[in-house]
Amino acid sequence: MVDENVSFEDNLKELEEIVEKLEKGDVPLDNAIEEFKKAMDLVKACDDKLKDAQDTIAKIVNENGEIVDFDVE
């Protein structure tokens, strides 16, 4: 499984590296299948992150250190 703590950026980068490795085609079959599984896990992790996308949360940090929602409208 993909580590939850790894950033989206790192996941995307690793995914790109694996895809490039697989495309080169010089990976032994066993490894290739392992790498492919890992790639699919990464795709899923990225998908999940993107699906998570909700509305941007905007907050204002007041002088007294209080953090409250900041309404743009």
């Binding site: 989206f8 992150k49 993107l50 998570d52 996308a53 909700q54 509305d55 941007t56 949360i57 905007a58 907050k59 204002i60 940090v61 007041n62 002088e63 953090i67 900041f70 743009v72």
Partner: peptide, 26 residues
């Protein structure tokens, strides 16, 4: 906090990358 800048920034981020939180230091 009351300028156009913060509004422009928040709406732009919302539109492009809603996975991000914005914190305003007025």
């Amino acid at each position: 906090a009351n300028g156009a800048a913060i509004r422009d920034i928040i709406t732009t981020i919302k539109r492009r990358w809603p996975l991000c939180e914005v914190m305003l230091f007025p």
